[in-house]
Write a protein that binds this DNA or RNA. Structure first.
Lengths: 252, 252
DNA sequence: GAGTGGTCTAGACCACTGC
DNA sequence: CAGTGGTCTAGACCACTCG
């Protein structure tokens, strides 16, 4: 078998950069995902079908899918098929939220939208979200409650073009996680994020919302989230009250 | 080929819990690593040799090694061999230290040991390090500097039995990372850690050491580190000054 | 050139799911 | 039962490293 799939209709390119076949297959599947060929939660074709489609062996497709499953892009289910990972999946709810009660256990959480307005991208949004100056952005402020108590205040910046029709009402109506809603209502799937953590003193407004004294230490979490193709589509800054919760991180 | 390697000298057990062959091989290799059959930085036998040793195909050994490489336990080097991962490897230096300058770039860092004394395990050490009440522990206090400026104060708790002969002098003499030294001098390799982050107010002592006002917000990072077999061998609490640095985390 | 890991294939069989 | 992913094997060839 040739070291290139350039003869396939999907990639008529004769790339000068060589990569193993399974990686080319991975890119093709990735592209199909990006194009929305299969929606989150749906099954993708079986390994045998994909092998036929791309004219490679099942083993090669398998290796491509293995990597994508490791990247949390796909989910394998033995005996059933391979599915597009979704934030609607209960197991993915806390994938991006590392907050956990100090006293162990699991607490019911709730997102409380406070405000939602539109603005024009300033230098910050331009830099982080890769927009052009003055492009429309949406700003959301919301509270995250654990066990009925406020623990996080978030300020979320979104590219307006990507989330048309997002309003406070839409936010209030939606249940489940924000990313789950983004996926269902706007077809935007977050697959990766970078977080920058610092300790800061609570300003007056945040202190009131979180029910802590002004000036008390809060965990500041800035997050940039990316969709397919490493395109940034969300910037958010959260202030976490770590009186009764902590940010849990696994290093390996 | 049979679904069990129970006939091998290494595992004369006829376990009732079934696991795929490659996972049994993985466990055997893990066990060999734990036993110190190959030291960090050394090459392990080639895939073909291991296949012969365990009476399985090269592909099965490959899959076991693949997983261990993904776990950062082994490092593959094409054309050379597979090596036991080591904290002496420059690429691993910052594996457990997520601190990075706000202004980007890389700064030279230095560990400054302050104190080192012995004590008996209290309830905390017993719980976290799995010791028995009163067993010897070692406590280290040290400062971490970036670009000649203090950024982190650490208090580190170690099981005394595991680090015999660890003194302030030993700490002062050693260059490189602490984990690198643990590996070289005590044969203890950290392979995984859990961190719990919170925001706290600077106490007087820490504030002085970090050169910040008392009461200013600091990032508190509690870490439990594990060696082979998920045995906890270090508990540390660090206070990070996040005035000019932040804790960077990748979510995926 | 010999030895290593890396890729790709083809085929057999197992384990799980759901009709 | 058919169809899916999961495991294991054997063999061919490639890419890289080093003497």
């Amino acid at each position: 078998m040739v070291q290139s799939v350039s003869m396939l209709p999907q990639t008529p390119v004769d790339s000068p950069t060589f990569s193993p076949l399974y990686r080319q297959i991975k890119d093709l599947i990735l592209q199909a995902l990006d194009n929305g060929e299969w929606r989150p939660g749906e099954a993708i074709p079986s390994e045998i079908e994909l092998a036929a489609r791309f004219h490679v062996s099942q083993g090669t497709v398998r290796k491509a899918i293995d990597e994508m499953a490791a990247d949390n892009l796909l989910v394998r289910r033995q005996g059933k098929g391979t599915y597009v990972a979704s934030h609607n999946d209960p197991r993915a709810f806390f994938r991006f939220l590392r907050l956990t009660p100090l006293a162990g256990g699991i607490e019911p959480s709730k997102s409380v939208p406070l405000e939602c307005w539109r603005a024009k991208a300033g230098t910050e949004a331009v830099r982080v979200l890769g927009l052009k100056m003055g492009e429309p952005i949406i700003i959301v402020r919301r509270l995250l409650e654990f066990a009925e108590k406020p623990v996080v205040v978030d300020e979320i910046y979104l590219p307006g073009d990507v989330f048309p029709g997002l309003t406070l009402d839409v936010l209030k109506e939606s249940t489940g996680s924000l990313y789950s809603m983004f996926e269902t209502k706007f077809g935007v799937r977050m697959i990766r994020a970078e977080e920058r953590l610092r300790a800061v003193a609570a300003d007056r407004v945040s202190a009131e919302l979180l029910n802590v004294p002004e000036g008390s230490p809060l965990l500041s979490v800035e997050r940039i989230s990316f969709t397919y193709g490493d395109r940034p589509v969300e910037w958010r800054r959260g202030l976490y009250s770590t009186a009764e919760h902590c940010y849990l991180n696994e290093l390996s």
